[in-house]
Amino acid sequence: MIEITQLKFDYPKSDFRLRIDGLTIQEGEKVAIVGPSGSGKTTLLNLIAGITATDSGKIKVGQFEVSKLDDSARRDFRSSQIGMVFQQFELIEYLSVLENILLPFLVNQSMQLSQDVKQRAESAARSMGLGDKLRRKSRRLSQGEQQRVAICRALVNEPKLILADEPTGNLDPKNKRLSLDLLFEYCDQHRATLVVVTHDTTVLDGFERTIDFETLVAMKDS
């Protein structure tokens, strides 16, 4: 599903450098990437998702060679193939729960917001216990509920790959477990790949593989 070879990336005007010789993640695999804060885990997710362009090397996700796509193509790839979950949930405060879930369809002109999609979003929300809060504004939800909305948003386009950046960082133990279980359940049902970046080692037991980021990268301080 994901193949990374000879990846090089530097932030301009910064001494941060990311070097990965090789990484392969199989389709349907649930992988946790652990490592200290600031080590480059989020950068790696951004590179895989095509949010950030590589300097050199190859990143291939399914049939897409992300490192060769232009900005527009990377955006379409991201919309159609990837679901993203963020640590701060990143819900839009002025939208309702349902509109937040449908956000990928609202902001991407190439994705059609059909009745099917709406029904799928409502169904996903109900399955996550948000059925009675669809019209509610996101800031009136609890932390756990907000993360469940964020997960619904990541899954609404039925992605083959889910990239989650510290998805449990702001949650209590009960909601941590619930959020991860929801992601695992989706991956099992859709044979989707899950890559979770975390520095929380208490949540690793459900993953099939754990990658220590420090041993993965060849990171050098200039």
């Binding site: 949010i51 991201r78 963020f86 902001v107 991407n108």
Partner: peptide, 16 residues
Amino acid sequence: EREMETMYKIGCSRLT
């Protein structure tokens, strides 16, 4: 800024 960044990350173009 963060709202715009989130939109961009989930597939919104800068033009949009």
